[in-house]
């Protein structure tokens, strides 16, 4: 860690000077008349440089666990926890990434995770956006009370009712099946809430105009509201997908046979069985994170918007 910190400290000022020279170039010919304006500009520039420096150090420090994870996944087991720390493997052991598929049924785990995540996401987005239309664009008695019930359950910790849910699934004979997880997670109140928050920002006049044009309510939902709410749909889909993919407790409680396990369960059991195979464990971790990283990089805008919408306008 020390090497890293020193390296960062050495890098940060360098990056700072690079930025100053880069920024001073176009800035200097502008000799604005007012002195006060100029000093202020200079001041904010130095602040920016300091902020850059701080941010670079901070972000590198925060990303150290990821860096360490990737670096360890390319080592031999006995090279992972060494004194002093090797940040870069002496020899890159790429074979970890070919061996893991035969050590544990990783492909099956990935398929199971993908299957669950896709089905749950589709159902959640479909039923959530339908219900949100009912809650925001159709007026009928009892609607707001019902919506309060939805919001109320968001406040109840899931752990508080996981036991009755489990009993129910047991009685239905659905434990140890994907069906149980799909039923439990596809109709979440959160999705309805997020979509409704977004639909409330779409002016009612648009629906009114469509009604006058003779569109049915279902037509308005499909042809007016859905196309307008693409960002919210993307947010909900991405958040649901990632949540399902990362979910540990659900599969942990409901899926007992190995052939149904998701990536998270498979990885956890691998750690339990072979706790000294540090490098292979890190390889598995990297593989479990990569799909999330790809999805996140494609849709990061929607993640952040989704959180801001569901959070702030509540």
């Amino acid at each position: 860690m020390t090497n890293m910190a020193e390296k960062l400290k050495a890098e940060a000022p360098l990056l700072g000077t690079e930025l100053t020279t880069g920024r001073r170039g176009p800035g200097s010919p502008q000799k604005s008349g007012r002195l006060r304006h100029k000093t202020r500009e200079q001041k904010s520039r130095t602040i920016n440089i300091v902020v850059y420096g701080v941010l670079v150090v901070l972000v590198f420090a925060l990303l150290v666990p990821f860096f360490w994870m990737i670096s360890s996944s390319l080592k031999e087991n006995n090279q992972v926890l060494t004194v002093p720390i090797q940040w870069i493997p002496q020899e890159f052991v790429w074979s970890n990434y070919t061996e893991i598929w035969t050590r544990i049924p990783m492909m099956g785990y990935l398929q199971n995770s993908l299957y669950l995540a896709v089905i749950i996401t589709c159902l959640q987005v479909l039923t959530g956006s339908l219900a949100a239309y009912g809650f925001s664009k159709v007026r009928f008695p009892g609607r707001d009370v019902l919506f309060l019930a939805y919001i109320g359950t968001i406040a109840v910790p899931w752990q508080a009712y996981m036991v009755p849910q489990y009993i129910m699934m047991q009685q239905l004979g659905l434990t140890n099946s994907f069906t149980s997880l799909i039923l439990l997670q596809a109709f979440g109140a959160f999705g309805v809430f997020l979509m409704r928050q977004y639909y409330m920002t779409i002016p009612d006049e648009l629906c009114e105009a469509a009604r006058i044009d003779g569109l049915s309510e279902y037509g308005i939902w499909a042809r007016v509201i859905l196309p307008l709410s693409k960002p919210a749909l993307a947010s909900l889909a991405l958040l649901t997908f990632v949540n399902t993919w990362n979910d540990y407790m659900g599969p942990f409680i409901y899926l007992t046979s190995n052939r149904l396990w998701t990536v998270q369960l498979g990885l956890r059991s691998f750690v339990g069985q072979f706790d000294a195979e540090y490098a292979m464990i890190m390889t598995g971790s990297v593989i479990s994170v990569v799909p999330i990283l790809i999805i996140f990089l494609i849709g990061q805008r929607y993640f952040i918007q989704g959180i801001a919408t569901s959070g702030m306008k509540g």
Binding site: L130, A131, G134, L146, Y161, P164, Q165, L183, A186, F187
Partner: peptide
């Protein structure tokens, strides 16, 4: 509009909460 979601919500969230 609400029913598809509500059925799942009722069965797997609301009833377990009350239970």
């Amino acid at each position: 509009f609400i029913l598809p979601n509500f059925l799942g919500f009722l069965a797997f969230t609301l009833i377990p909460v009350l239970a």
